[in-house]
């Protein structure tokens, strides 16, 4: 047998033994694994949520209503004619006229400035058209907006996208927060696993001592603990995936009703294959890292000096 094969065998054995050892204390270890799972699920779940919201906001972008404010000199009849005219253009779905009177009434009702406006005497608002693009007419909307803006009768073309932009920047910010949460919880996983491994080292002090006395190197003594950590991280990641899909399952039917309400084909999207692999890899790595920290700190004792 080659040295390399022997080495691989040894690792494989440690790998299985570590699993065996975890199974020996199912309750305590399962609790640890669930804690790790929750700690991994939280940042991942937040990321999934933000991804879904980004997707919604993107789908909204394509077909947005916009408002055209007309010149003050335009009277209601011309405004109406203009509305009918615009309605005939390609890419336009609906055009609704909001007369200056209606606008003022709305404003008085919702702004809370009702009485202040009364003192103005004259209505400062122009007629406005709310234009909804036709379905599937995404590309020529900005074209249309430009044309409308160039017309003599119009004063200002305003996209109602400010709130989408705002949502976007909030999502952007949320992603940053998720990054921070990811780092914090990753650190938490390292600490939890490190502590678990520390306890295991304490429990197996005799075995460690004897192994060192018969010539087991530090690497040899450490290896089973590293594999324990690896298993904890791996199992925790699996639990995290279960938690995330469980929550998505619970949310999918309310999400569908919301989507129906808005006549959108939106559907909740879970982590894809690559993201799932990344989560498992991350959990496994963090488990290994936690065990490495614990063994480095606690395995030196059996040596002289």
């Amino acid at each position: 047998m080659s040295f390399f094969q022997k080495y691989v065998d040894l690792h494989y054995k440690n790998f299985l033994e570590a699993l065996q050892r975890i199974k020996q204390q199912p309750v305590g270890n399962l609790m640890t694994i669930v804690v790790i799972g929750i700690a991994l699920a939280l940042p991942t779940g937040l990321r999934v949520m933000v991804n879904n919201l980004s997707m919604i906001s993107e789908s909204w972008n394509s077909a947005t209503d916009f408002t055209v404010y007309l010149e003050m000199s335009i009277d209601e009849k011309s405004a109406n004619d203009l509305a009918r005219d615009i309605e005939q253009r390609s890419g336009v779905g609906d055009v609704v006229l909001i007369t200056r009177e209606e606008a003022l009434a709305d404003f008085q009702e919702y702004s809370g400035f009702g009485e202040a406006l009364d003192t103005l005497g004259e209505n400062p608002l122009p007629h406005a058209l709310i234009i909804s693009p036709a379905d599937g007419a995404n590309s020529n909307i900005s074209e249309l907006a430009k044309t409308l803006n160039a017309m003599e009768e119009t004063n200002l073309v305003q996209f109602d996208t400010a709130w989408i932009d705002r949502l976007r920047s909030i999502l952007e910010l949320t992603l940053r927060v998720v990054d921070i949460v990811t780092v914090l919880f990753g650190f938490g996983v390292v600490v939890v696993i490190g502590n678990t491994i520390r306890l295991e080292i304490n429990n197996r002090q005799d075995e460690i001592e004897v192994t060192k006395l018969v010539g087991g190197s530090n690497g040899y003594v450490r290896r089973p603990f590293l594999y324990s950590g690896l298993w904890f991280g791996f199992a925790g990641a699996l639990i995290a995936i279960l938690i995330i899909w469980g929550i998505l399952g619970l949310l999918s039917s309310p999400a569908r009703s919301v989507a129906q309400l808005y006549e959108s084909g939106f559907r909740l999207i879970g982590p894809n294959f690559k993201e799932t692999l990344a989560l498992i890899g991350m959990g496994t790595f963090l488990g290994w890292a936690g065990a490495a920290v614990a063994t480095i700190r606690h395995l030196r004792d059996a040596d002289p000096e």
Binding site: K212, L213, V214, G215, S217, N218, Y220, D303, P304
Partner: peptide, 10 residues
């Protein structure tokens, strides 16, 4: 050295 102790003990 400390690192060599295990091999020595064998």
């Amino acid at each position: 050295s400390r690192r060599k102790i295990p091999y020595f003990r064998r």
